[in-house]
Every structure is written in C-alpha cells, then in structure tokens.
Design a protein around this nucleic acid. Structure first.
Length: 275
DNA sequence: ACCGGAGCCTGTTAGC
DNA sequence: TGCTAACAGGCTCCGG
C-alpha cells in the first residue's frame, strides 16, 4: 500500500523518463478511474501538454504540465505507474494509459480500481485539505504539539487522517507509534511534552527509513521498474502479529483501531489508564 | 469534534 | 483437492 515513502520513490523513478516529454493522448478502459474532469475533457485538455515537473504531496503524485494544467494521480492501495514502450503488451489491470511523443507510454495499473486521476488548473482543488508534510522543516515539534492540542481522538486514527499529517498510512503509523512507545489507542491530547517529542522524532524517522529502503513491498507494491523496496524487511511491528518484539521479546499484538488493523507491542507501548 | 459503518474493488487467504 | 466467503486497505460520505 503506497504511502509517503512509496509514492516519493515512484516520483523519483518517474522524473528521468517523463520530465520534458509531451503527452499526446489518453486511453481509458475504466471511466471511474478519472475523477476530474470527464474522460472526454481529459483527453482534450491533456493532449499536447508537456510534463514540466513531477512532485509529491501527501500520497498524491503531482505532474506540473504546460499551459497551466496539473495532472494528479493517487495510487490508493494497488496503483502502480510505469513507463514502457508503446508496443509492450498491456496488462489486464492497466486501465489508463498516457501516450507520449517518444514512442513510450505512462501506464496506470490498478487491480483494485481504487486509484484516481485528476486534471485540474488549480491543484488546491484536490490537495487543499491535506495536512503538513512531515519531512519538511516547517513540521517542527511545536507544529505537531499545536495540532495535537485539543484532539480527543485516538493516536492511530489521527495519524491516518490525511488532514492531520499528509502521507502517513497504516504501515508507517504503526511503526511510528512503536518507536515513540505510544499505545495506538492513546488519546491525542494526553501526551506529555516528552511524548510529543518522541512521536515527532518517530514519524520522521520511520518515513526517512522508508525512503532509504525505497518503500515497503507489502501487498503488491513495487517500484516503477518492477523491483521491490526493502522496508518490509526492517519493520518492527507491521504484520508481525505473534512474532516477538525485537526490543523485549513479547509477542506483537494486532487490534482494530479506527477500523484499521493495528500492530503494536503491549509491553513497549503500554495502555494508559483511562484510554 | 469525533466515531462507526457502508461503499468502492478484486486478489488472496482462511475455512470448510 | 476444490470451492466459497471473508478479508484487506485508502478514502469519502453519511448518520449519530
């Protein structure tokens, strides 16, 4: 499931083959893939646009195009982008294809069909409600403290909320809480100053670790070239239910928090009174 | 402000 | 061994 490190890894891999290329047209076999505008209007507006740059915001890939257009793609769970020669056989799960002027294509493979494509003139229309980027310098301990203040929600669902922090998903939320030694069900407004510092450090550390490992190849994720990241080899709790905690040897537990499977060490991340 | 549940999808896995 | 049913997961929308 692509989260910040997986999306950033994808962006970095796509820059070389795509920046400077011109999109000649789009083919689509699953209209709901295209959130904005209509598939017909997408075809009209994107044809002839040049890709000027590719960036990431939260879990969104943001393609800055010529003529003031912005192409935005969200991979959701099973989305995968690759650049291949146009004569490469098309995979059964590839529903949207952008044809380039150099004889290659940007292909959006998306088995579960949750991914989305947007073409907008104002990126804020799609990205406007996202919270801060956790790896930017402006995301300070103080910034996190302010955002936690008055929040009565449990930490796990809060970390998954993209308007709270952009880019954190199930894997990195569990890992961050483990390193911060915080119970996933802990109420956000009960953290001590030291615990806020620990959470801030942990969030940035696990995301950085994910970047260095080029993502976690869990549940189908692979890089654009089809090779795997290695973050899955160094996770501490995610999907390690029943395996022993590397720190204390206690079996990792799995619970449902905010409707999401959640993994933690019951000894290293003790349940607080009243939570 | 926050929570829970439904819905979107289909490959994988658990259970018979 | 073969089949079906449940599950997973990011995100949005809805009702409480």
């Amino acid at each position: 499931m692509p989260e910040l490190p997986e999306v950033e890894t994808t962006v970095r891999a796509l820059r070389r083959p795509l920046v400077g290329r011109t999109i000649m047209g789009v083919r689509n076999t699953w209209p709901r893939h295209i959130a904005l505008p209509s598939p017909e209007e997408l075809q009209e507006r994107i044809a002839g646009r040049r890709i000027l740059g590719i960036d990431r915001r939260g879990k969104f890939l943001v393609f800055t195009l010529s003529e003031g257009e912005t192409l935005i793609i969200h991979l959701r769970m099973t989305g995968h982008l690759s650049v291949v020669r146009a004569d490469t056989p098309v995979d059964a799960h590839t529903h949207t294809i952008f044809r380039l002027e150099d004889g290659r294509e940007l292909r959006f493979r998306n088995p579960r069909k949750f991914g989305r494509v947007y073409l907008v003139r104002d990126p804020q229309e799609v990205l406007g409600r996202l919270g801060p980027e956790p790896l930017e310098e402006s995301f300070t301990v103080e910034a996190l403290r302010r955002r936690l203040a008055g929040k009565k929600r449990q930490l796990k669902p809060l970390l998954l909320d993209q308007s709270f922090i952009a880019g954190v998903g199930n894997i990195y939320a569990d890992e961050a809480l483990y390193y911060a030694r915080l119970h996933p069900l802990r109420r956000a407004d009960t953290l001590s100053d030291e615990e806020v510092v620990a959470l801030h450090t942990a969030i940035r550390m696990v995301l950085q670790m994910g970047l260095e490992h080029e993502g976690a190849s869990i549940d189908r994720y692979v890089k654009p070239d089809g090779t795997r990241g290695s973050m899955q080899d160094v996770v501490s709790v995610f999907q390690r239910t029943g395996a022993t905690c590397y720190r204390c040897g206690t079996p990792i537990e799995r619970i449902i928090a905010g409707g999401r499977s959640t993994h933690f060490c019951p000894v290293c991340q003790p349940q607080e009174k009243g939570t």
